[in-house]
């Protein structure tokens, strides 16, 4: 009996190897979702034998690579515009979400103790609010002992989807930010120091007394940084949790933008975390290598169906079910092989 089982296992492994050689999905782009894509790919390979090779070279690089058709799919933290999608023949859909949190380094202040609102956050990052005991911060935190310490601003030095989403939120809530700084993956920062990557910002904030920065939620937890609460659009104070990130996603009107390109900043709803961010996948409507794209869609479909728990373990937020249904309907109707046959059928 044991022998038969062992033989069967070897047979399965061989079969796995065979199909791995036959199909390897390739993708490139955003660094923010890389940990979860890698985890999904690992689990998917164990289950189906089909591997995925994802290069986390940055959103800009991902867009360039998919436009050059060197990869099956591109991944970006900043959505492409409707015009851009139409021109290039790309289909865009959101894959997973995360939260961006302000982190501070203040003696005696515990995670979640400090409360900030959008306009104050914008004023801090513009450099107008210079000290921690400024009236604007004091008003929001009557019970927190704030030192008369200079605020040291830490921002990302590399181009990043995190910066894009953070700036988008500040531009929503502060006209001054909108006109003076604007929204992009990299900015002309009015003040502060730049650090490379989420880990760089986390480390600099951790090292510098009186510092404030912004990182992906997972990095704030891993580095045990002091994150702040935020006042959201509804005027309620919310803490960064999976629940508040999901609330923002549920309250968003996903169909209002082509390619589901909705930025989840400053969404309505009592429980919505104001700096929630989605990350997108880009594939061609009529890809050159139809088989590879079909495999990629199968993988994404599998991830939507089976990947939620893994995502939550890494502090990502899975897409709401209704959005997934819409996305899969888009796949079925828009992504086609050379003979016009749909590459994705919902039953699979």
């Amino acid at each position: 009996m044991k022998h038969i089982q062992a033989l069967a296992a070897v047979g399965l492994m061989l079969a796995g190897l065979g199909s791995a050689n036959a199909a390897e999905i390739s993708g490139a782009g955003a660094t923010f979702p890389y940990p979860i894509y890698a985890k999904w790919a690992d689990a998917y390979k164990k289950e189906t034998g089909i591997g995925m090779n994802y290069q986390s070279i940055g959103s800009g690089g991902g867009i360039k690579q998919i436009k050059a058709k060197t990869v099956t799919f591109g991944a970006s933290d900043a959505p492409l515009s409707g015009d851009d999608l139409a021109q290039t023949g790309l289909v865009q859909f959101p894959m997973v979400m995360g939260g961006i949190v302000p982190v501070v380094n203040l003696e005696g202040v515990k995670p979640g103790e400090l409360v900030l609102d959008g306009p104050t956050l914008a004023q801090i990052f513009v450099g107008d609010v210079k000290k921690w005991d400024d009236a604007a911060i004091k008003k929001l935190n009557p019970n927190v002992k704030l030192p008369s310490q200079a605020i040291a601003i830490v921002h990302r030095s590399d181009g990043s989807g995190t910066t894009y989403n953070f700036a988008y939120y500040l531009a929503e809530v502060s006209p001054q930010w909108k006109t003076n700084v604007g929204v992009n993956t990299s900015l002309q920062w009015p003040a502060g120091i730049g650090a490379k990557g989420n880990e760089g910002v986390a480390n600099n904030v951790g090292n510098t007394k009186g510092a404030i920065g912004y990182v992906e939620y997972a990095y704030a937890l891993q580095n045990k940084l002091t994150y702040t609460k935020m006042v959201n659009k509804a005027g309620k104070v919310v803490a960064p949790t999976s629940e508040t990130f999901q609330a923002a996603a549920a309250n968003a009107d996903w169909k209002s933008k082509p390619g589901y390109g909705v930025i989840l900043a400053d969404q309505p709803g009592d429980k919505s975390w104001p700096m929630t961010a989605a990350t997108w996948i880009l594939v061609y409507k009529t890809p050159q290598d139809a088989a590879a794209t079909a495999e990629a869609l199968k993988f994404f479909g599998w991830a939507y169906a089976n990947g939620d728990k893994m995502a939550e373990e890494l502090h990502y937020v899975p897409m709401p079910t209704n959005v997934v249904k819409d996305v899969q309907a888009t796949w079925a109707s828009e992504i086609k092989g050379p003979e016009g046959k749909p590459l994705y059928t919902a039953s699979k």
């Binding site: 070279i57 940055g58 959103s59 800009g60 030095s157 181009g159 990043s160 993956t185 990299s186 730049g194």
Partner: peptide
């Protein structure tokens, strides 16, 4: 060189 290394990947 630091500017190039930081910004080239995301330069759109």
């Amino acid at each position: 060189s630091a500017t190039i290394a930081n910004e080239f990947t995301e330069a759109v």
